[in-house]
Amino acid sequence: MKKLFKLILNIIPRPLLIRVSYLVRPILVFFLKGNTYTDPIDGNRFRTFLPYGYGKQRNNALSPSTLSLERHRLLWLYLKNETDFFTSNHKVLHFAPEQAFYKRFRNMKNLDYVTTDLNSPLADVKADICNLPFKENEFDIIFCNHVLEHIPDDTKAMQELYRVLKPGGFGVFQIPQDLNREKTFEDNSITDKKERAKIFGQYDHVRIYGRDYFDKLRSVGFKVDEVDYTNTLSQKDITTYCLAKGEIIPVVYKN
């Protein structure tokens, strides 16, 4: 199964994968029902989650029902337990909206919910993150998760995110990050897709972020909280929800 999923991820374009997944998901839910693991987003339980990864694959990473990964389930728990995201009125900008969240956020009556991306079929507004068509100080909350590692000029993207976030608002800008690496690594001379997937974790990533990612956000003007939310959870919850222990949620604020 691992080889099959790896082949699918590396051959089928992401927009097409999104469309196909809507057809495949009910079948996966039916055959993988069980009592070992729980998706906290919808409460469904399974005997196993699915493997996932463009390069090295991770076991029990992808939920069959919501198609959430570890980072999505961790963020859901954080938003639910530590913020007023689900209860107060907010204008939200969501980049490259994840399927695990899209319909749920869209249906929340307390949200004025706007999605954007250059390619996603789920985007309301087709836009370049480095040149956004939004006013200054327009959004209370911004989600930009696993996007910046695709952007050559991530400094310009961060500046645009800062510009459109309201003072007093917050954002979550998750990225794949090697916390053992002090400095972010880039090498545009590596052009082979297989080699890029091996080194960067995915063929279309342009960098591996290190611990300096947080300081780069601060240099743009954000206040940054490096939230290790798994540190507040029991080992049983981490295992049951299939989370990545020690994963950091970068929560940013604009004063």
Rank of each mutant, 00 (worst) to 15 (best):
K3D: 12
L4R: 13
F5S: 07
L7Q: 07
I8A: 04
I8H: 00
N10R: 07
R14C: 02
P15A: 05
P15G: 02
L16C: 01
L16M: 12
S21E: 11
Y22C: 07
V24E: 00
V24Q: 00
R25N: 08
I27L: 14
V29C: 13
F30Q: 04
F30R: 13
F31I: 11
F31Q: 12
K33T: 10
N35K: 13
N35D: 13
N35V: 01
T36D: 14
Y37V: 06
P40A: 08
D42A: 12
D42T: 08
R47C: 09
Y54G: 11
G55A: 11
G55F: 01
G55I: 00
G55C: 02
G55Q: 04
K56R: 14
R58T: 09
N59S: 13
A61F: 10
L62M: 14
L62Q: 10
L62D: 09
S63F: 01
L69D: 00
L69K: 07
L69G: 08
H72V: 05
R73Y: 03
L74R: 01
W76G: 03
L77N: 05
Y78E: 02
K80Y: 14
E82W: 04
T83I: 04
F86W: 09
T87S: 15
N89Y: 07
L93G: 01
L93F: 06
H94K: 01
H94M: 08
P97M: 02
E98R: 03
E98Q: 08
A100V: 05
Y102W: 04
R104Y: 11
F105L: 11
R106E: 10
N107A: 09
N107S: 13
M108Q: 13
N110V: 08
L111R: 11
T116K: 00
